[in-house]
Write a protein that binds this DNA or RNA. Structure first.
Length: 465
RNA sequence: GGCUCGGUGGCAGAGUGGUUAUGCAGCGGAUUGCAAAUCCGUCUACGGCGGUUCGAUUCCGUUCCGAGCCUCCA
């Protein structure tokens, strides 16, 4: 087996992945705060790490994937005031929407999807220990982590403490001794949710939840920690500080060994941001495009590169998938007892090179074009297996090949019946050599956006734009 | 202001010190009752300026441009 290489944000280099325990790979990725509909950026994170996990599952016998849900946070509190609902209602509603949307993108449920509110006790315990060990101090109702106590601070984001002070963008809160200190526990106002703690009624700082949940569920050190690029600083930096200091271990890899960050989705060439009002919500795209199309669009750039989100990207993704589904449709009579196989070394090599999906697709394009691969049943079986195994890792080719071309988000069942009736009539006309009628029907179908493909086994059809 | 990361053909996107992927779109042709699908062929590229080199898109420097972080954010 070839070595899997992944880009480790700690070293800013591609490194060979050496598992801590190759019987069970442990990976954690920071999930969303559920206070609104998921946006395309949330989806990219979910799709990227889902794909990484799928490849890990292809390689290793067991993978434990944890992705958390932040269900208590200032944004949720704000939202609950706007919607006049409890925080629990808000987070439960948007979590359920999130999960159902992810399902449409062929994102598997993580093995664990812990919620912050379920781990408050553990967080209190852990930050109490941090305080007892002298890494944290209490001031004006807040418990703060003292960054000075962790000399390695800044190593992930390649940022010295001086750099941050140079920033000056932060209006330093009065309770902070140093601007870079971060909150472990903050007091709750009367109308806000809170938990009792040694520091009074309050709630945990955001950076603590991932540290606590990853430590509890996966145990430290675990193999891979991931998330969006924007979490690198300060969120992940703060996690490392807590994770290492908690164990009194200054080795930055004593918390997590490899760090992976997905790039941003930009919208109209600018980062999607609420304040700019250019948030692209996933639900709006799911209305029009099949989840697989959106998934492929999200995978079209390397996971570390920025991705410019635009309509033409979705159209391109649809065309690509149509092409592959055509091939799979041609192979539909090839019987397979299972859809997984060991991939050819060359193809594996592309996956293993920090997920070089461009090369993966170049390889797939080459094998579907090669006539040799259609010469006999055995070769066709092999081709089909490679396509489906690759599709399983990428989370595509999951639909019935004929359904793929029939389904359209805007179409109803009734439309499909209507279409198939017309196709039937046209086939009859063709058999009777009544080409005028056949052509008229075809024109009708084209007007409906339907394209006919005649084949020896009867007409097949698909929707076109 | 400080710190990261990028700039490849109409678009998306790999990669490499010399033979210059791949896809989408376009164009031309073959095929077809007509079409479509399919197949074959095909045009555009490596931000600018220096340097190293026999030779640079690839290495170095510099400059311009872009994105991100430094504040909640996937």
């Amino acid at each position: 087996m070839k070595n899997l290489k992944i880009f480790n944000s700690l070293s800013n280099k591609k490194e060979i992945f050496f598992p801590i325990n190759n019987r069970n790979i442990r990976i954690y990725a920071c999930g969303p705060t559920v206070y609104n509909y998921a946006h395309v950026g949330n989806a990219r994170m979910a799709v990227v790490f889902d794909t990484i996990v799928k490849l890990l599952r292809y390689i290793f016998p067991k993978v434990t994937y944890v992705s958390n849900i932040t269900d208590i946070d200032d944004k949720i509190i704000q939202r609950s005031l706007v919607e006049k609902k409890s925080c629990e209602q808000i987070s439960a509603t948007y979590l359920s929407i999130y999960n159902s949307e992810m399902k449409q993108l062929n994102v598997d449920n993580p093995d664990f999807q812990p919620k912050a509110t379920e781990y408050v006790e553990s967080m209190i315990e852990k930050i109490k220990i941090l305080q007892d060990k002298g890494y944290a101090y209490f001031n004006e109702g807040h418990l703060l982590f003292s960054v000075l106590t962790f000399p390695e601070y800044g190593i992930l984001s390649k940022r010295s403490k001086e750099d941050q002070i140079a920033g000056k963008r932060i209006k330093v809160a009065s309770y902070k001794k140093k601007p870079e200190d971060f909150i472990l526990w903050k007091p709750s106002k009367e109308n806000e949710p809170g938990w009792s703690s040694p520091w009074g009624k309050g709630r945990p700082g955001w950076h603590t939840e991932c540290f606590a949940m990853a430590s509890d569920i996966l145990k430290t050190p675990f193999d891979i920690h991931g998330g969006g690029l924007d979490l690198k600083f300060p969120h992940h930096e703060n996690e490392i500080a807590q994770g290492c200091c908690f164990q009194k271990n200054k080795n930055i890899q004593s918390y997590a060994k490899y760090w992976m960050h997905n790039g941003f989705v930009t919208f109209e060439e600018e980062k999607m941001s609420k304040s700019l009002g250019n948030i692209a919500l996933l639900k709006d795209y799911l209305k029009v495009y099949n989840g697989e199309i959106i998934r492929l669009a999200l995978l079209s750039a390397h996971y570390r590169s920025p991705l410019v989100w635009k309509e033409s990207l979705l159209i391109q993704s649809k065309n690509i998938l149509d092409k592959f589904y055509e091939v799979l449709r041609k192979l539909e009579d090839v019987k397979l007892e299972n859809y997984n196989t060991k991939l050819p070394d060359e193809l594996e090599g592309y996956f293993f090179d920090d997920f070089n999906l461009s090369k993966v697709f170049a390889y797939l394009n080459r094998i579907i074009k090669d006539k040799e691969n259609y010469k006999n049943e055995e070769k066709k079986m092999k081709l089909k297996k490679i396509l489906y195994t690759t599709g399983n890792i990428l989370g595509i080719f999951k639909q019935d090949t004929n359904e793929w071309f029939k389904n359209d988000k805007k179409a109803s069942e009734k439309d499909i019946k209507e279409i198939e009736k017309l196709i039937e009539q046209r086939s009859l006309a063709r058999m009777e050599k009544n080409f005028n009628l056949a052509d008229n029907i075809r024109k009708q179908l084209i007007d409906l956006g339907i394209e006919i493909q005649d084949s020896p086994k009867g007409a097949k059809w698909k929707r076109v734009k």
